[in-house]
Design a binder for these strands. Structure first.
Lengths: 219, 219, 219, 219
DNA sequence: TATGAATGAGTCTTCATTCAT
DNA sequence: CATGAATGAAGACTCATTCAT
């Protein structure tokens, strides 16, 4: 969303760079404790020029949140709409979520810690998006219960367990960690689905069906 | 850590009150975004008197972290030392952890969000304590694997799953929520241990054994 | 209106001093062009301490406007309520107005030039007070017409002439000028009332009646 | 004062447009509180191009003052040089002055409020021109006294009354107001001259003589 | 002619902290 | 014990102005 009208071709590129740098700083020190001066130093820009790009500090926060929630929601909506077993879709969603987390660890730090510094409309929009994501997870879990794959659980508590397990990952994961999204997703889902599924359900077969799905969709 | 020597009898009481109020404020707005002035207003004290009690803003943070980790570590050490099945001990640890989280939600917010504002020795001490807690969980999980209850998993990943699931709870729990620590612990452990245990292990019997243990120890 | 609760005895005194100094600076350079730093230098206070007294820059403007309009409105209401010839009351009002202008030239500069920098409620309140003052003048002029002393004029235009003549005085008057409020009021009223009155009205006798009134009310 | 040599034909036209827009903005928010960026937006020009036309912000102020004082002084000089009764010339000057005020209300706002933001030579020149205008009024009043039309008044105080009454008009007049310059001039002069003239002088006949003069000079 | 990008001093305001009383 | 008063660095942000293109 390029703000003011009339900007040169390099504007948006530089702007995105600055948002990257801001995300790194916010992740490290927290949004409130990061000064605009510090960001200027990192960006190699005087304060005036900085504001030419960022508009305001809160605006940076908005952009960072959008970078997290935008792709995530898009992917989640697509996955939810697939004509596949709900458990498989949960597994896909899990991997997408973890992929997003691991790919942009600093963005996630900010996303998880500093959303409360958003005000007014920005905050409302964020919360709406968060709720939409949670709803997608909730609905998939409910579907999995209806399909007989999962036991009758409190769907909300199931969703919260799903999110707890995934979303807390940013706290200890680090760039170039030993585990990638695929591995973590397999492990997390193995744990969750063992707990959630009916005795009759073939948890072990899930990874096989995932591979099949991937063959099909890449074909 | 009562500061200088020579304090009246009410000193420590008032000091603890102020730390309570600080925790509430820090949880609400974040440590960095909370002003000492705000705290003074809530405490009904002018700045001078406030500093007489708190020493410094960072000191408040230290105290809050201690209130979380002190009791938690004490309890964790005791549980780890029990002469019981490691799985049962994990279940006990889980409930204790959740009990602490739910009992002091605002402290946990601060503990999770703002420990990075600690500097130097305070920070080092905190990290040491966190690692000790993680080590206790790790060792219990390893014991459970050795005992044959759990499959051979990467113990570190198992520990991280355990902590993810528990520690992220503060994000959505609220005072007087519908679920208490016992219930959540049962649910979380059911999920985790279903995923972790060997096919031969009697997960369902865990709660029974827990009840037995409680009968014994209260007797 | 001392703002925050709990201030020492010297607080209000110092606060009033600072407002004085602010009025002088605002009058000289204009509100918008005067920096808080400048005020701090004049007051001999660091910025922090300054804000301890002033609250905000706009608040200074509010106080200055109040110092002008408060006493003026009080006096105007009293004069309007007197049981005297409306022309005499206009003459009294004129002198009061000029007295206020000459006594606080710098406040008047700010009052006349910078009221538009007030926002929201502050601005609304100011405009209400200004209109009240204008209404008092208007009503007195209308009364004077009804009493037969003045010709049938457009009362609004008469009021505007009255205010033009008086209110523009701040532009050229200076402290210790050669003319005091009494003299200027006599001259201004002589001019205005010559133009306004009916041929039968005894303009020249007004000053005599004023002297009588003053004898009476001081007795 | 067109700046550097070598400008295209449209330069001066656009430049005048920009000064118009600047006057409107300055009148609305005050010179100090108006940003160059705001002006650029209104003018539809980026900052670079804007500066190509305006030279500097202070220069705009100079131009606006010149637009007020230039025509006013030219007209005042011509009127003063007429071979007519000084009272008639004062009446003509009054109408010219009011015409200028009503025709360019925003320029007058700036002229009255922001001349103090001029520095050095610009300020000196402005003050010189203001004094010249005042001198013209002063001399006409003195002439009217010498001619016996007016009483022996303090000529300076008479001039100040004349200017007060006229110059404060900008404060409440607005474009398309109910009163035009001719009407206001007639009313203002009726008031002033009633107060100033000797008992023998025929104030009421002034408008008649003005009409005669206009017949003559248009013929 | 006109632009977009950059500057850096300047804007108002808040901060955690200290200390004489 | 407690206060009110003071500090000065730092907070986010805007300013008029310049200049390579």
């Amino acid at each position: 969303m390029p703000r003011p009208p009339g900007h040169g071709p390099g504007y948006e590129i530089k702007r995105q760079e600055i948002i990257d740098q801001a995300a790194a700083l916010f992740a490290k020190h927290g949004y409130a404790a990061t000064g605009i001066a510090e960001l200027g130093q990192v960006a190699g820009l005087a304060k005036g020029a900085l504001y030419y790009y960022i508009g305001s500090k809160e605006n940076l926060l908005v952009e960072i949140q959008d970078r997290v929630l935008g792709p995530l929601l898009t992917a989640a909506r697509q996955i939810a709409a697939l004509d596949e077993d709900p458990v498989l879709r949960l597994r896909l969603l899990s991997e997408t979520l973890l992929g997003n987390i691991l790919a942009r660890l600093d963005h996630i730090w900010v996303y998880e810690h500093d959303y409360r510094h958003l005000r007014g409309a920005n905050r409302a929009r964020l919360l709406r998006q968060r709720r939409e994501f949670e709803k997608i997870v909730l609905d998939l879990l409910a579907e999995a219960m209806e399909s007989g794959a999962f036991r009758r659980l409190d769907p909300r508590l199931a969703m919260l367990q799903f999110l707890n397990l995934h979303n807390h990952t940013y706290q200890w994961a680090h760039r170039d960690g030993q585990w990638d999204a695929e591995f973590l997703s397999r492990e997390y889902c193995a744990t969750l689905f063992s707990g959630f599924c009916n005795s009759g359900y073939d948890v072990a077969g899930l990874e096989k069906r995932l591979a099949d799905y991937r063959d099909r969709s890449s074909a």
